[in-house]
């Protein structure tokens, strides 16, 4: 029922036809300061990112490991919000009309804004998908209604612990792509188990034709490549946020160049 106009579907289809895998890169909006995010998004794209996941800073990011927690804290020092994050996406769209942008965050800032207002502004800003970590399908019904109205994809998570019956239920509500959480743990964890990823993706594919991107624990081109052997795309986050933190006192050109270089390395690993 989705129109094929959505950038996520277009991009995933184009990659499939080119026999390539999606590189999904995550940074936190406003980390380490709000004035760098727009240029960082462009640097990600020009060095090979296919989809940008933009983290909405939250005071209590329960699913994040220490690296991304600190990214949220750095952004919150500057009072970066859902509103200002969507304003950045709108600016991004002035020069990039192709690259899909997915907002990733937690339910409370969206609750506070109100689902309808959020969907309207997100659509107006050129947001393509929303992934709300603590809003599993059973609690997402009301938000889904609003997102559908404006043709924004609601990206749901599947996990190593998700049962078969539940996989069926979740994929029936999902659109855009399915985000498979590769491990039991928080973002940036070090216990990626390829065999279990392979087995679970095989199982998930029996129940959906949606593309599957895998995230959590992917640190470089090599791990992205190994995961992408079974998946349609790899999500890489903590290493970018770590870089942002390490270079927070450097000149913006240094940060942008480092972000670009890291992206190019992972892209190259993924494609080889």
């Amino acid at each position: 029922m989705k129109s094929n106009m959505n950038r996520i579907n277009q991009r995933m289809l184009a990659l499939k036809q080119a026999n390539k895998k999606a590189l999904v890169t995550y940074i936190v909006s406003g980390d380490p300061s709000p004035d760098i995010t727009l240029d960082a998004m462009h640097a990600l794209v020009s060095n090979g990112a296919d989809i940008i996941e933009l983290g909405i800073p939250f005071s209590d990011p329960m699913a994040e490991g220490p690296v991304i927690q600190l990214g949220h804290e750095r952004a919150l020092v500057h009072n970066v919000s859902l509103t200002s994050t969507m304003a950045i996406v709108k600016q991004f769209r002035e020069t990039d009309t192709d690259t899909p942008v997915v907002l990733m965050g937690y339910a409370n800032p969206i609750e506070r804004m109100g689902y309808s207002k959020f969907a309207t502004i997100a659509s107006d800003s050129g947001v393509d998908g929303v992934l709300t970590v603590d809003l599993p399908p059973e609690e997402a019904v009301a938000l889904n209604v609003e997102l559908k109205k404006v043709e924004i994809e609601n990206i749901f998570l599947l996990a190593p612990t998700t049962t078969v019956q539940r996989i069926r239920e979740v994929v029936s509500l999902a659109s855009g792509f399915v985000y498979y959480v590769s491990l039991k743990g928080v973002t940036g964890a070090g216990n990626l188990d390829l065999k279990s990823v392979k087995d679970k993706l095989t199982l998930i594919r029996q129940h959906t034709d949606l593309p599957i991107c895998v995230g959590f624990g992917i640190k470089d081109g090599a791990s992205a490549k190994s995961v992408a052997e079974y998946a349609d795309g790899a999500v890489v986050g903590s290493v970018f946020v770590d870089k942002m933190g390490a270079l927070q006192n450097e000149h913006r050109d240094v940060v942008l160049s480092a972000v670009g270089q890291l992206t190019a390395e992972i892209r190259s690993g993924l494609d080889n």
Partner: peptide
């Protein structure tokens, strides 16, 4: 309700 990430649902 149950506002948690997918990994904890089961």
């Amino acid at each position: 309700g149950r506002f948690v990430s997918e990994t904890l649902i089961s």
